[in-house]
Amino acid sequence: MTPDKFAPLDPVIHSQVRLAVLSILASAAQADFNFLKSAAGTTDGNLSTHLAKLEEAGYIRIKKSFQGRKPLTTCILTERGRSALSRYVKALEDYLPKEIKSKAS
């Protein structure tokens, strides 16, 4: 199979930062902005842009609240986001040789 025949990758997830965010949220019930920023190794502004794209696509829900006087932004993966990530991982596997597909999954 040539790369042209592979399942297309979801453009919303096909970015290092957005993939990192969704991967964290897949195993965490929720994560706050600073944790995501530090895990994805990005800046406030960049992460905000990526989170807005994910929220717009309905892949995450963003909850804004206060912890004492500090604003707190918490992100939660939606069912739609979980399915999209699962499809993305399956599509990625098509790019790997057969022998390492099983290891990757």
């Binding site: 790369p3 592979f6 990758l9 096909h14 290092q16 993939l19 990192a20 991967s23 964290i24 897949a26 195993s27 965490a28 994560a31 895990a39 991982v89 990625l92 596997e93 790019y95 790997l96 040789p97 990757a104």
Partner: peptide, 22 residues
């Protein structure tokens, strides 16, 4: 997207899962 990029994406997913676990 090629095989190398796919490997990098899968490594990134694994790294993030490991970070959450820790």
């Amino acid at each position: 997207m090629d095989e190398q990029q796919a490997r990098e994406d899968i490594k990134l997913i694994r790294d993030m899962l490991e970070r959450t676990r820790r």
